[in-house]
Design a protein around this nucleic acid. Structure first.
Length: 373
DNA sequence: TATGAGTTTCGGACCACAAGATCGC
DNA sequence: ATGCGATCTTGTGGTCCGAAACTCA
């Protein structure tokens, strides 16, 4: 069995004339990973796209493809791969790891700069786009960094990760609202169509993050590529979402959905969690009752390193799948009549047909269909 | 190199309505 | 304190459109 598998592996894959293994998906970029499950060598981009498509794919065991030593030609990368390095939902390779780390360091550094040196900050702002937005939402006063450390600098840190997001990000939300300097377009990009508000109180909505934009435009949108390339926007995205919702990242409540690789959050679970995380009533801005945000004015090297680490960890835990918070609403939306993509009024005929259908199911099956999971 | 036209990519708006949230009594 | 009805708010997906990015002559 194993022998057969390995022989199969030897047949796939291709190299360029220079002896570099090529991605079998795009056949354009050098292969950087070998996916055992797919038995394919992939470049970083294709690996990211393919293995972030759904939770199952994400669990594929991939190992980095070592560069072929000079003079060592036509060697199957699968034969020279080192000890397997299980990526943690990320895309690790020795080569790209270095690059990613450098980039991380660069990003983290630039983020930290917001807090350290106003002069550098302004320079950094230019680097990320127009000076007003920094490429992010905030201006000056360590805004971004402030966000980075909201999780850590507040008193909820001892609770589970979800609590971190909930209590801290709510504050962020409030502060952000009061700041009033945000770029509305960026906000929209970040939090999709979720209104800029806090989901509080007993609202079951308050718990589950919206993972990325809608699964719209499936026919021509390639969100994974885009998002991996635009980290600045991602942080806005993450920020705005986390501001509105708690983020129980340590516990996955997602369930794969049929054709769309989206997570579906059972409503019952949503309700349970929300109960345990009471928050400020919706519509209120609670700037004073919550633990205050305490930002150090000077960063020690240790602080800085800690922040960078937190930054990286948070970056790793980012998720891009869309999460369905109400499966029942999704089901209704999918069944709803449309005109050019827009929801259309349901005619009497439609209602009757649906009524008959549901009645038939009930009588034949002897049970009711509960749309919610 | 600069410019304009054409093409591609992307984000957001739009719609109806069930379900949840809120309010007053 | 509890229950109930009325009203308000939210979330859901497919398509279209405009803006931005990109390509090419």
């Amino acid at each position: 069995m194993l022998k057969e598998e390995s022989s199969t592996l030897c047949l796939i894959g291709s190299t360029t004339r220079a002896g570099v293994w090529m991605c079998e998906a795009c056949e354009q970029a050098p292969a950087e990973f070998l996916c055992k499950a797919d038995a394919a060598s992939l470049c970083a981009t294709c690996d990211a796209v393919i293995h972030s498509a759904n939770p199952l794919a994400r669990r594929h065991h991939r190992v980095p493809v070592m560069p072929i030593p000079y003079g060592h030609q036509e060697t199957d990368p699968r034969s020279i791969i080192g000890v397997g390095i299980e990526s943690r939902g990320g895309f690790l390779s020795q080569e790209s790891e270095c690059t990613v780390d450098d980039q991380d360091e660069h990003e983290a550094t630039s983020w930290l700069l917001f807090n350290d040196d106003p002069a550098k900050n302004s320079k950094n702002q230019n680097q990320y786009g127009n000076g007003n937005t920094n490429g992010f939402l905030f201006n000056g006063e360590g805004g971004v960094d402030e966000y980075l450390d909201l999780v850590e600098y507040n008193s909820c840190q001892d609770t589970q990760f979800s609590d971190d997001y909930q209590c801290n990000d709510l504050q962020f939300d409030d502060q952000y609202m009061s700041n009033g300097t945000h770029n509305s377009k960026n906000v929209q990009q970040g939090c999709d169509t979720v209104p800029w508000r806090s989901y509080g109180g007993g609202d079951a909505d308050s718990v589950v993050p919206v993972q990325g934009g809608k699964a719209k435009n499936h026919h021509h949108h390639h969100h994974h590529d885009f998002r991996h390339q635009k980290f600045e926007s991602e942080m806005e995205y993450e920020t705005s979402n986390a501001a509105g919702y708690g983020y129980p990242a340590s516990v996955s409540h997602s369930v794969s959905m049929s054709s769309l690789d989206v997570g579906v959050v059972p409503e019952s679970i949503v309700t349970e969690v929300s109960i345990s995380n009471a928050r400020t009533p919706k519509g209120t801005i609670d700037l004073f009752s919550s633990p205050s945000i305490q930002m150090p004015t000077q960063l020690t090297p240790l602080d800085r390193e800690a922040r960078v680490l937190r930054y990286r960890e948070k970056k790793k835990t980012r998720k891009f799948e869309k999460t369905i918070r109400y499966a029942s609403r999704k089901a209704y939306a999918e069944k709803r009549p449309r005109i050019k993509g827009r929801f259309a009024k349901r005619t009497n005929a439609d209602a009757e047909v649906e009524q008959m259908f549901s009645t038939t199911l009930m009588t034949e099956g002897g049970y009711c269909i509960v749309p919610s999971f």
